[in-house]
């Protein structure tokens, strides 16, 4: 199983698409590691720098609704993974991106809007970290001297994929 949790990167916009996460021109790379410098390259958000220290140190992304919409490219979870980001917490996900995350043994965690709003309440603190217990279905966010814990739902299948380390290993044993 992968490890989850660490510094948080806040991306405050709905409908962040996979072209923004990893532009198509980099899909010609054959290894996942080669994608690393191009993370979120085309995402334009106020105050966000894809090459900045917050992106580099991030281990968890917190975002809004319909995260990962658009292209089916699994290069989106991969570019996160090679940059050390193994979990995204959002109001909702596009189906293919969500499945790609779990298929890679990564976590795409959905929380209701008011809880995501509460997470964004931490966005201006400089020391925000999140601890994520996928098996126990709870996350704890800390920063600015505060702390909040939220429980989350995850389908039993998606949890099994995280525990198995991904779909290939799971399917190979079972089918």
């Amino acid at each position: 199983m992968k490890t989850f949790g660490g510094p948080v990167l806040f991306l405050d916009r709905a409908d962040i698409n996979t072209d923004e996460i990893i532009p198509a021109k980099y899909l010609t790379e054959i290894t996942k590691e080669d994608l690393k410098p191009y993370i979120l390259e085309d995402l334009k958000l106020p105050g966000f720098d894809p090459k900045g220290p917050k992106t580099k140190s991030a281990r968890v992304i917190v975002s809004r609704a319909n995260f990962g919409c658009g292209s089916s490219r699994e290069h989106a979870p991969w570019v996160f993974e090679v940059n050390g980001i193994t979990a995204v917490v959002a109001e909702s996900f596009a189906r293919i991106f969500r499945q790609n995350m779990f298929n890679c043994g990564m976590a795409a965690i959905e929380l209701p809007k008011e809880k995501v709003d509460a997470l964004f309440g931490y966005a201006n603190f400089s020391d925000v970290t999140m601890a994520l217990d996928v098996e126990g279905q709870a996350l704890t966010i800390k920063g600015g001297g505060k702390e909040d814990t939220f429980r989350f739902d995850i389908s039993p299948f998606d949890k099994a994929l995280v525990l198995a380390g991904g779909w290939v290993d799971y399917a190979d044993q079972k089918y």
Partner: peptide, 18 residues
């Protein structure tokens, strides 16, 4: 349905998808 590379890989190997 469109899928990612891992679903594709399992599809190629096992002929199934979840």
């Amino acid at each position: 349905a469109g899928v990612g590379t891992t679903d594709l890989e399992v599809g190629i190997l096992k002929g199934v998808c979840a």
